[in-house]
Every structure is written in C-alpha cells, then in structure tokens.
Amino acid sequence: MSTQNEMTYAQAIKEAMCEEMRRDENVFLMGEDIGVYRGAFGVTQDMYKEFGTERVIDTPISEAAFVGCGIGAAVEGMRPIVEIMFSDFMSVCWDMILNQAPKMHFMFGGKVSVPLVIRTASGCGTGAAAQHSQSLEAMLCHIPGLKVVVPSTPFDAKGLLKSAIRDNNPVVFLEQKLLYRTKGMVPDREYLIPLGKADTKRIGTDCTIVTYGRMTQLSLKAAETLSNEGISCEIIDLRTLLPLDRMAVLESVKKTKHLLIVHEAVKTGGLGGEIAAEVAESDAFYYLDAPIKRLAAEDVPVPFSAVLEKGVLPDEEKIASAVREVVG
C-alpha cells in the first residue's frame, strides 16, 4: 500500500533532485550558494552532505559561465541541474538560454542533445522589487527548443522535476517563490508527471480558468467563493507552458463556453494572449458565449511598497470578479 507524506513545495523539489541523483550518477547540481548556505530559498538544504561538494557545487557569481558549463557538460553526456538564484538573473546568461542550449540539437542536425535543467525562482510577493520579482516565462516560451515548466503544488513539482531531469532537452523549471513553503501530499512511491500535459485542478461547468503556478492556488480559492454564488469554475493548470497542452484548453472551453486566463506575469506579450489566440483560431471559438478575458499583472515593473506590489497583482478577489464579469 502506498502512503503519502505531507511536505512543502521546496522539500518536494529537493526530493526529486535527490532521487534522481541517487538513480543516475550523471546528475549533478550547480549554482550560487547551494551548498552549506542551502540556496537562497533553502531548497538544497543538506544535499551536499549526502552527495558531496563534487556533485552539489557552489559556483562563482558567473551565471553565463556556469550555465554555459552546464550546457557543455550536458552535450558531453551529463545531466546537470543548474540553479539560477532568481529568474531575473537569466538576463546575465541570456545568450546561453536563447542562443546556445535550445538551438544545438536543431542546428547540429539532431546529433547533439542538451539534457539540462535550469531551476530558478520566479514571481513576486516577497517585497524584493523590480529586479528580483519578475515572471519571465513568456520570453522563454518564444524560444523553440526549450521546455518551460511551472509547477503549482508539491506533488506536481516533484513529478515534473523528475521528468525534466530525465528529458533530453533543456528545460527551464520556474519555481514559485511564494509556494516554496506551501504544503501538500506527496506519495512515497516513485512517480513521474509527463511534460506537456495540463492538469484539471477543479472540474466545473460555467467558466474555464486557464492558469499556472501560484495563480492556480489563488484561482482554486476564488472558485470556492464563486461556488457559493452558484458559479462552477473549471481550473486548467497548464503545468508546462512550452510545449503548451492546447487540447486541454480547447476541450474545457468547449464545455464551459467561457474563458478567463490568469497569470502573474504582466499582461502585454504574456501567455494569456497566446492562449486566447489558440482559442480564437480553433473551433472552440464558436462555443464561446462571452469574450475571453485576461487577468494579469499591470504592465509596470514590480513595485517595492507592499501596497503597490499587492495592488498590481491578480489576487483571489480580482479573479472572482473577473469570472463574474465573464459569465455575466
């Protein structure tokens, strides 16, 4: 009989890494302050004790060099997990993420593969202001050859990360800062969650909410409130943003005839536009009873003041209001 343990999102991520490192000696971890310090968010706590500093490697503050080093090691058959402390720091190693890792398999005619995972902390709500709080997934989704994953629960985080580590492509794994300490049940037995598959987190009939990451949790709370008002929401948690599970979105929209898209990233150029376009281009469009709505962060840099930071973000109440508007 399989049992379950309650653990945090951060612990689930660590468990996934530990299991894969025990399973495959080619898997190793490198990043800034991930050893004794345990990583900026405590995810890698004590991992160096089990695996040694040869496999849990503190790097210089040289994101471009160590991400590039990860790519080179991956090409040579290893399976590096590279931690970039904050996703905002992808800016200083962007060449590696944009031009190197995702292009090699294609450019070199399929002879080279890059089994690399880049784990990085994403999202706002911690008062870290404009350079430590961004949600940059849409930029990543514009890069064919990459895979982009954003888990919303400890269960998903573990299963998706294990799949990402075993995947033969570069995967950017965007961890949600405000979810690190949230808890959930995770089975003892080994399991994998395939990349590219959305998950219906709540079944409903009146309105589809397509979302991912932390906004999934807020959408679930909003759906509870709305159910008391007689509005039944279906929540599609995308989990993998690239490749996108288009069918999951379209099928749900055909059923509920209403669509709200929620994300923490700014609205302009965000995933919401892409998802809305997928629906608009498909026969699901004919099923819609109301215009599609996007709820996203305001198109501003993430502000510092707690009042402002909260003010520019979607929250439970804004999600509930948006659904009411859509179902009219």
Binding site: A64, A65, C69, G72, A73, V75, E76, Q100
Partner: peptide, 10 residues
Amino acid sequence: LALACGAAFA
C-alpha cells in the same frame, strides 16, 4: 569558452 568548460568538466 564556457561550453568547453562544461565538456572538460564531464
């Protein structure tokens, strides 16, 4: 330069 570091690491 960085890619070669990775291959050498392996």
